[in-house]
Design a protein around this nucleic acid. Structure first.
Lengths: 220, 220
DNA sequence: TGGAATAATAAGGTCAGCCATAACATTTTG
DNA sequence: CAAAATGTTATGGCTGACCTTATTATTCCA
């Protein structure tokens, strides 16, 4: 079990690493973008986290989690997603706000509260955005899916999860019916990184590629 | 409704002001002691909070909340105590740890979560330590009681609330059966600020005066 | 292969909320 | 009423996590 005292900022970096792909090498730029800091700041912070043994940074290549970092990160993500479940299922908080509200709570949650919460919620396996919840022992089964942005025209898919975090993006997707469980089909992909045209339920929806990255789908 | 963004530290100062007596003039020293900072730091911070219009400081006399400060403080205390109820009633967290664990959560709680939580808990009026929970509209009915430290020999009283916050103090009192609802009698008060000897249930308990300050009682 | 994009590094700045030390003011108390 | 306790103010310092600006290094791609 992890015994480290992670700062709030550290937790955000770790969480971002998981959200950008648990085992991926992530560029400083992408990390900075996700965390809304400048690349220079991300670089500094990555050095600090490297010093703490949480991740490794290969200059000009990118960043990846160490085993220690992965463990800590899973713990953080577990807390985050458990709170999402609680806020949604029991407090009936608006779907699009779950991430942001759960995020603040996550940073403030002691291990015993995490586990008591998990028990209270009956050990849920997925958060309301469709993402898997790491287990108490640190095991974590990433989704068997891929971003909608990599889908090809004609494909019919099921939305597994929404990987976005900001309320506005979540609201945007929700308003268009792009939610976990939904079936969608790619009707058209505009050239030059243009938007996708999707069939979502009965409706046709245009979706920019960068938004499509947040939508994790599984081809049926 | 309060619209200010209060820092965590600010919230702790406001909370301490309520806990030391909503309408009392509190000395910098007492505040510093409760918050575990040096008097110099408390002084600085009090100046900052004064600048924000949350409290007034009369040099050499003490500090008291302004109306604005009282409103903000009640809000903070409401969140704190609602979380205590949740942690106790639903997550079955150890009584003595409630304050500390709820404290972290409190700082991370958005207004909509507070109100959804209150509804979920069915608008409780008291926290597990016996303290009243301020209402959503800011009204707050302090307890009609006084600290055990001011009781006189022979008095029989009911414990209304425990005003302590640290886990060790709460645990100490719990171990001696000094809990809300309990009836106690002062058998003896040692001179020179010495300890009280109490009858708690069947047992005799010695309790230092400074601990007795945390025990709010009502003479029967 | 050379220019664009991306990344790294350096230097210096900000801000909140603490700390210590020290000098000085006021209040309480014995 | 004097000494002790308490409170105030000033100065300077620290830390974490950001920021900007500027220079330099590397990688990617056309």
């Amino acid at each position: 079990m992890s015994l480290l005292q992670l700062s709030e900022s550290t937790e955000m970096y770790l969480k971002a690493m998981v959200e950008l792909g648990l085992s991926n090498v992530v560029s400083i730029g992408r990390l900075a973008e996700r965390l809304n800091v400048t690349p220079v700041s991300a670089n500094e912070m990555v050095r600090r986290l490297g010093d703490q043994g949480l991740l490794t940074h290969t200059p000009y290549k990118g960043v990846s989690l160490t085993d220690k970092g992965r463990e800590a990160a899973c713990d953080v993500v577990r807390r985050q997603r458990l709170w999402e479940v609680f806020l949604y299922e029991h407090l009936h908080i608006e779907w699009a706000k779950l991430y942001e509200l759960a995020c603040s709570l996550e940073h403030a949650t002691a291990p015993e509260v995490t586990e008591a919460l998990a028990a209270f919620l009956d050990d849920p396996k997925f958060c309301p955005r469709g993402n898997p919840i790491p287990a108490a022992d640190g095991t974590f089964q990433p989704l068997d899916g891929h971003p909608l942005s990599t889908a090809s025209v004609g494909e019919t898919m099921e939305v597994l999860a929404i990987n976005a975090t900001t309320t506005d993006v979540l609201k945007y997707l929700q308003e268009r019916g792009i939610l976990p469980g939904q079936t969608i089909r790619v009707l058209e992909a505009a050239p030059l990184q243009g938007p996708l045209t999707l069939k979502v339920g009965e409706k046709e929806v245009a979706l920019g590629l960068s938004l499509a990255e947040f939508v994790i789908v599984k081809t049926e």
